[in-house]
């Protein structure tokens, strides 16, 4: 039984990843969007300095924005992608068709999580390669930095995927999904230190953003990619990786509970 569920889950991952890349809108608005933003910021602010690194050299716009774009990628690949994708699948009959087959719901979830993991990892690699090769960003060289990157990425992408599944219940129809979900993710990106420097925001807004996981994912990514001198610019002048793990982990649990309680193949009436 479990073996079948896992085998079908893996088969779903292949199917999900394939259809993700065959849909132009998901490739553009989810997969390439952070790369596009990194390119725009790096080009627009190429003459500007964003502080100095540990050797006293000026920090480029690309180096400064890279961690934020990686965090945005986690949010887009998980929350935005799945919330819209599943709402559309509920609206267009995909879920109804699957509900009539022996496919276990858990296998369907494995497929969605796998899709987010694969596409999110590909997106992160693409961002890192372009940042390094095109914009000459110096990437970390220590194993400690990369292991921090690995857990922040994995925890972030999983939480984001689970929250995406949970949010997919909100749009009433597949057609309204984009209009309902994108404002949520867009506002989060603006208040969580992705596009705007987090420390420039008023304290009350920082406190609001701290409730949500994106602020913490972005902070975790900054701890990996920004020079150590930037740590004193953070809230409390620390990277606070414990806080990153705690808040993101709490949202993972909340998301799992919501999914367990609310997910149905179709809206059964009466």
């Amino acid at each position: 039984m479990i073996a079948t569920t896992v085998r079908l889950g893996v088969s779903r991952i292949g199917n999900e990843v394939r259809s993700y890349f065959r849909q132009g809108d998901s490739v553009f608005f989810t997969f390439l969007f952070p790369l596009l933003m990194l390119t725009i910021f790096s080009t627009a602010f190429s003459a500007q300095s964003f502080g100095t690194d540990d050797n006293g050299d000026s920090l480029s716009a690309a180096s400064y924005y890279l961690p934020g774009m990686l965090a945005a990628g986690l949010l887009l690949s998980g929350v935005q992608n799945l919330a819209i994708d599943i709402a559309v699948e509920r609206g267009d009959g995909t879920l109804k068709r699957l509900a009539g087959t022996p496919l276990p719901v858990v296998s369907y979830f494995i497929g969605k999580l796998g899709q987010v993991l694969v596409t999110g990892a590909a997106q992160a690699v693409l961002l890192l390669v372009v940042a390094r090769v095109v914009f000459g960003v110096d990437l970390p060289t220590t194993a400690a930095a990369w292991s921090t990157f690995a857990w922040v990425f994995l925890l972030g992408v999983t939480t984001s995927a689970v929250l995406g599944i949970a949010l997919s219940r909100i749009p009433r129809t597949g057609k309204s999904a984009t209009a309902v979900i994108i404002p949520i993710t867009l506002v989060l990106q603006f208040i969580s230190g992705v596009y705007l420097a987090f420390t420039d925001l008023p304290t009350w807004l920082q406190n609001v953003a701290s409730v949500f996981p994106l602020k913490w994912m972005a902070q975790g990514m900054r701890s990996v990619f920004l020079p150590s001198g930037f740590e004193r610019l953070e809230q409390g002048e620390v990277w606070n990786l414990g806080g990153v793990a705690l808040v993101t982990g709490l949202w993972l649990v909340v998301g799992l509970v919501i999914c367990r309680v609310t997910f149905r193949w179709i809206r059964k009436d009466g």
Partner: peptide, 24 residues
């Protein structure tokens, strides 16, 4: 089950879709 027609995105090929569903 053959439902009344639906409007799925259809981003698999005929063969891919049938092979995938056969696995269920």
């Amino acid at each position: 089950i053959v439902l009344q027609s639906t409007g799925e995105s259809g981003s698999a090929t005929v063969r891919e879709q049938l092979t995938h569903f056969a696995g269920f």
